[in-house]
Write a protein that binds this DNA or RNA. Structure first.
Lengths: 298, 298
DNA sequence: TTTCATGGATAAGTTCTCTTTATGGATGCA
DNA sequence: TGCATCCATAAAGAGAACTTATCCATGAAA
């Protein structure tokens, strides 16, 4: 049996409106349906209950005793439902959930998100950092900031930052070995997250052909943030994205000995589901973020 | 726009069940639908709200924060609705509304309805007497007792009493004219409701050919009860149904001078809508009434 | 490890509810 | 008397909602 047959919910909704207006026609207007449809639904409900809910008087209707009894409860129930749905919709409309890599969140978002909130005080920001690629189908994410090739199906992606990489270390550590003059000098120092293919790629690009990286510990710290912290503490050389750490370089916490950067074709992207591109909070965030990065808008 | 589109009520109902069971499959069982249909409805609701309500974990699902927020309110609202509908159904199930002619109600029902209530203490009886033929479509009537030919479309009818008619008067009035010996004697007395075609029919059947009824006042009292009261008070001769007034005849309040009765093909019927023949209260009343009148049951 | 059982997602097709259009009837008002 | 209002009914069409069939992932059992 169909659900709507056992419990005529839509008919109840129509009934609520009719009881309020005392008119089939007006209720139809409110609900965006014809008077005929209203008549049909009321008849349905009356059949379901087993007695009339309205007395059909000429040019007006009147609640029967039964209808009089039913109306306030139905009204109360629908008010609860409507309010619950409204507050839910409002919450999702006004909360922007950003999924981001830990590095981008800490190095960039944490610094500028305040400006966004000043500009859009009605939008509450929820920032989620996780290592995994977010599945917009399954999680309540509005936008994601991720690195990759920007070719995710079903998503719109804007490249916001080249994900270049270059070796960085603390100035102090560099001084200890008498300065880093050429790429091969780096091999004298501990390489952080040496298993990362970026190392091999960068050394190849720098003309160091026989770099044996296998002798370094295979530790992976997962985020550049951790690698950077270790490097700043003098623990070795980290392969970092200059875009993220330019401030640390400027203030002398980190030192980038060579201009040469690598890029493996993967960059930083802002991404969001194609079908939600016009949701206001998403549009606002996209516009704000792309302006910050001087990206051409579409 | 469709009503169900602006406000997915059925989806909410499904959601309530799923939230309670923590399972699409179990909710489907409860609602009498397949797991697939449940999945569809939940997806619909999630799209409407704009974020997931359940986290799909391997062999179980879990409410998201949003779902957790929505569930109790939805549950509350539906409890109100369910309870309201149930109490309404219960009221209509347990109240038997009988529409009857005033005469039958006063002469017969008033005497025996007590026995029915003793036998079915759970059924509350509401007795409505009205001159009009009841429209089961428009009024909250369960059964009707009416006279006619029993050929009402959409209704089941049981003939419970022949609607014969015979002249009756008070014994005292009869004595005043030296007794009523032959039908024509009646013409010496005032005929009550003389405009009623029953008079002409009865006199014709009695062999009184030239009865001029036009000289009597045309008053119509509408119910036999009133005619009978006037007759008992010695106000004239009334054309009454012996079945209704046998007790008054037995106790001498009325006198029926001739055995001859007329019948115009219309009798007393119990009637109720065909599609409600199996409603318990109706079935019980029918059985009880037909037994009282020794009518063959089907 | 392989197999089985559980629970949900997806695709495609079908049913039938719900809606609309068109029309009629009843009543009140000018 | 004619017009406007309001609800009821009939017929037909649209599309929502449901089902069947199938697949996938996971956890438990053999």
């Amino acid at each position: 049996m169909k659900l709507s047959k056992q419990f005529p919910l839509n008919a109840l909704r129509v009934f609520e409106s009719v009881a309020r207006f005392g008119s089939f026609t007006k209720a139809g207007d409110e609900l965006g349906m014809t008077q005929t449809a209203v008549s049909y639904q009321i008849k349905l409900l009356e059949e379901n209950i087993g007695e009339p809910l309205f007395l059909r008087r000429p040019r007006q209707i009147e609640l029967t005793e039964a209808g009089e009894h039913l109306a306030p409860k139905v009204s109360e129930a629908f008010n609860i439902l409507i309010e619950a749905m409204a507050s839910m919709r409002k919450a999702t409309e006004e909360t922007l959930t950003i999924h981001s890599t830990a590095t981008f969140a800490q190095q960039w978002l944490s610094r500028y998100i305040g400006a966004f909130q000043l500009q859009f005080p009605d939008i509450a920001v929820r920032l989620v950092t996780s290592g995994n690629i977010v599945d917009f189908q399954k999680e309540a994410a509005d936008v994601a900031i991720r690195w990759g090739r920007g070719d995710w199906p079903g998503l719109i992606s804007h490249c916001i930052m080249k994900l270049d990489f270059a070796p960085m270390l603390s100035p102090k550590l560099a001084a200890e070995i008498g300065g880093v003059h050429e790429p091969a000098d780096l091999l004298k120092l501990p390489l952080i997250s040496a298993g990362d293919p970026w190392w091999a790629q960068w050394f190849a690009a720098a003309g160091v052909k026989d770099a044996d990286l296998s002798r370094y510990p295979k530790s992976e710290f997962g985020t550049q943030i951790l690698d950077a912290s270790i490097a700043m503490a003098g623990g070795g050389v980290a392969m970092l994205n200059p875009g993220h750490f330019q401030e640390d370089v400027a203030t002398g916490r980190l030192y980038q000995p060579f201009e040469l950067t690598g890029n493996d074709g993967r960059d930083y992207w802002l991404a969001y589901p194609e079908n939600r591109r016009n949701v206001p909070k998403i549009r606002n965030f996209r516009k704000w973020l792309l302006e910050k990065f001087n990206v051409e808008q579409d």
